[in-house]
Design a protein around this nucleic acid. Sequence first.
DNA 1: GCAAAAGTGTTAGGAGTACACCCATGC
DNA 2: GCATGGGTGTACTCCTAACACTTTTGC
Lengths: 224, 224
Amino acid sequence: MEINNPLYKNIGIHIMCSIFTVDKGKVKILLIKRKNNPFKDMWALVGGALYNNETLTDGLKREVKEKTGIDLDNYYFSNVFDEIYRSPVMRMVAVSYIGVIDGDKVSFLRETLKTNDADWFSIDKIPKLAYDHENILQDSLLKLAKLIGETSILKSLLPDRFTLPELQGVYEAILRKEIDRRNFRKRMLNLGLIEDTGKTRKEDNKKATKLYRFTGRVIDKDVF
Amino acid sequence: MEINNPLYKNIGIHIMCSIFTVDKGKVKILLIKRKNNPFKDMWALVGGALYNNETLTDGLKREVKEKTGIDLDNYYFSNVFDEIYRSPVMRMVAVSYIGVIDGDKVSFLRETLKTNDADWFSIDKIPKLAYDHENILQDSLLKLAKLIGETSILKSLLPDRFTLPELQGVYEAILRKEIDRRNFRKRMLNLGLIEDTGKTRKEDNKKATKLYRFTGRVIDKDVF
DNA sequence: GCAAAAGTGTTAGGAGTACACCCATGC
DNA sequence: GCATGGGTGTACTCCTAACACTTTTGC
């Protein structure tokens, strides 16, 4: 049967995850250092090969858990990478996802069965990466900038209730531009991505600030 | 080496293509009838298994050529389908694309090595399809409706120079709604997807109509 | 009182939507 | 002259972008 044609057997699937956080106005990416070949001792995105008996997102969660100890539950599909020699070992097609977590709250493992180290890297200072991960990362950054305008992808980065200046700081870090406070507020509330909780928070030496929460709505404009 | 773990070997990749046309106000999909098992004698989307030595889009073009004789050059990524048992033969992950052609101009083969028949089906009258192709098709229809607002995906359906009423008819068929003539014109020109050629066409018994062409521009709005 | 951070309102321009009239043609 | 199909303009609303002042607080 044609399905046994060796030409299209033994293709593997990588599930990759660009795990982002934003810390002090900087976007950071969680990288792991590989313990094994290929690309032994090099930094890499989190991810690995899909098993036969799991869906892509099951594999994604398993790989993230195995290589970082993190339980990822906020992720979005990003892209497919199919360059023929992107893996030196065998033909691997990568399906990439984007995850966002709060780097201050979520702890990760420095070492696992397959990793020697793990750390957050500012996206301005990325070391040389294994495979085509640099490519995947850059693509994911563009996608992240899109997703924050259409989804609640940032909900796992901020506390349940957050202030608008906090949220704006995250947007400015990801979009790499300053945004007008008044327009930001109007736009965010108008889009319906967030809503007023009616509560406020009082910091040490500041005016009380209003608290908002994500609605979970997804923006999907019609053509006509 | 872990890459030899049988758990994640032998995954296959399907590349699927929903090939659409619009004919007399109806959106139609090109289906082929399978000659072989699994799903022998059932209608199916065009597509097949990726070879180790080709990229996804190379495989896409090869499969479309093999099963329909068509040289496809206008296609867009659509989605990934990863249900574990979507193929009864082995684990197959499908990467789906959308193609648009002019059904009146492009001819296709009724029979090939792997197909017994091929035909256009109105999307209102789809036969039972092999695999999860019904699912992929419905998903592709939604994506197509998005793509016509952002890309020049329709350029292969219309002649190089086309009239606005022609284009509007295609939009209405895909979006399944009527659109105001004046607003359609303003919006299309404003978006920059099409441009005035400065020429007109004179049909038999009609007023001369202005001709437009696609610009190839892709609409990609910024968040802020 | 002054500096820092947060909140709010106004205005002008551009896009979207709804809607009505004129023009060319063939019969 | 009338029916058909193609072309255009206006008014209203809404979103966006630019921009300035007031409030609270701690020092």
